[in-house]
Amino acid sequence: MDIKSVTRSRPGRLIAACALAVTLATPLAVTGPASAATTLTVAQSLAAQDGRSASVTGYVVGQPTATNTVITSNYTADTAIAIADAAAETGTGRMLYVQVTAAWRSSFGLLSTPSLRGRQVTVTGTLTAYFSHGGLKNPTAMSLGGGAGPSPTASPTASPTPAPTGGPYDSTYYASAIGRTGTTLRNSLHAVIKVQTKLSYDQVWDALRDTDEDPANPANVILLYSGRSQSKSGNGGGVNDWNREHVWAKSHGNFGTATGPGTDVHHLRPEDVSVNSERGNKDFDSGGGAVSEAPGCYTDADSFEPRNAVKGDVARMILYMAIRYEGDDGWPNLEPNDSVSNGSAPYLGRLSKLLAWNDQDPPDAFEKRRNQRIYERWQGNRNPFVDHPEWARAIWS
């Protein structure tokens, strides 16, 4: 990638409402199955490049000039902007390239209005590739979403609607699942959470530095099993380094580290190299001998028991994987069972123990923050069992 002159600043946050529509003198044709009912994040829009019409909210981060190039100064045209979920985003893979047609160029083109960079905007148009990159074309509405600033003469000032009680994801993200149980709940949740941005294995390093940041020391991450706070830069393969632990062991289904389940940050966590190796690909259960570098953890020949503070976290990560990967997108159908001798089969146990851990260790502030960061900044999807732990029993009763 080639992105210039970007400085880090506070990440942006998703506004809770769609921008008011703007009517053009000559409406532009929009392809896609239906108009957008809610505003998407950039991450969600990148995962939905299927020709639908949608409204997307993000921060203007620069002008795209090629598939992997976004410039942040000395702009050359008013014909395109790149938006992202964070105002300081530098990774082009997490940017949406937006076509700026003639009706909007004087107010939303960076050559004419360079002060637009860093501002939050909402754009409605067709989600389809632009510059051979995730994009939005043929805009039918563009407005600022977060304060006064440039906007087209024909555009009324947008008035954000307050988020519904409980957070916008609760009333809209899970709308198709609320009130369901068993197989219908499972199917509804799968349809919701499979819409995600897929990361490369290299991108996982950066994601974990963000999602598992120590709240008491932003230069560190918290290691899952050992609970140790360790420098974000102390990753690698050496003794006492931290690496990327697959909580659903990647050999259980042989999905490796290819983009997909092998890079899904909802079950990847920082862990001490030695502890990661000691866990290996064992199933989860109680008992065994103490793990010397991970106080409160135990292991034997066929199972691993995490410390009490993260037992529920481990359970909810495993249950997420079972719902997300149902065998319909080229990956194996992952499923928890009550065995601890699953080998390379796409199963992981022990389910009865995982359900008990989910009950005894409910989501804490760290786990909830992690879920939100994955949703807002990295994958655009959520772990439903962090938001609704009761759904575990509703599905696997």
Rank of each mutant, 00 (worst) to 15 (best):
E376Y: 07
L223D: 00
T72R: 07
F255A: 12
D214A: 10
R324H: 10
R373H: 11
T128P: 05
L224P: 04
A17C: 11
T211E: 13
N281S: 14
T259V: 12
F108K: 09
E271W: 05
R369W: 09
S55K: 04
R244L: 04
T76M: 12
A37R: 12
N235Y: 15
E367C: 11
V70F: 10
G93W: 00
F108I: 13
R279M: 03
G182Q: 10
A258K: 10
R8E: 13
R105T: 06
S132C: 02
R119M: 15
E293Y: 13
S151G: 06
Q379D: 01
E293Q: 12
V98G: 04
R279S: 05
A82S: 11
E326I: 04
T101G: 03
T23P: 00
D214M: 06
P332E: 13
I178L: 15
K4W: 10
N281V: 10
N281T: 12
Q203M: 12
G91Y: 11
S35N: 15
N308L: 14
V123K: 00
S303R: 13
K353T: 12
T172N: 11
R180Q: 15
R307P: 00
T57V: 15
T76R: 14
S9E: 13
D285W: 05
P152C: 15
S106G: 14
H252C: 07
L144S: 11
R52Q: 13
G253P: 00
V239A: 15
T181E: 11
D202Y: 11
F366T: 07
V100N: 10
P164Q: 06
H267W: 09
G330H: 06
L223S: 02
R307A: 14
Y59C: 04
P346G: 08
S132I: 02
W104S: 01
D300F: 07
T41F: 11
A25W: 04
N138G: 05
P152R: 09
S171Y: 03
R369L: 13
E305C: 07
P215M: 11
D85S: 09
N138P: 00
W378N: 00
R377P: 00
K232G: 08
G260K: 09
S341N: 12
K4G: 09
D78T: 03
R10E: 12
P389E: 01
L40N: 00
P336G: 04
D264Q: 04
S132N: 15
P156V: 04
V314A: 08
T172L: 15
F131Q: 01
A365N: 08
G289P: 00
V314N: 02
V386F: 12
G330Y: 04
S53L: 04
W391S: 06
Q63D: 02
T90H: 02
V195M: 05
A25R: 10
G262C: 09
T57A: 15
D361Y: 03
A43G: 06
G91M: 10
T79F: 10
E89W: 04
I318W: 07
S188H: 02
S397Y: 12
R324Y: 06
T67G: 02
A315P: 01
P261M: 10
D272I: 13
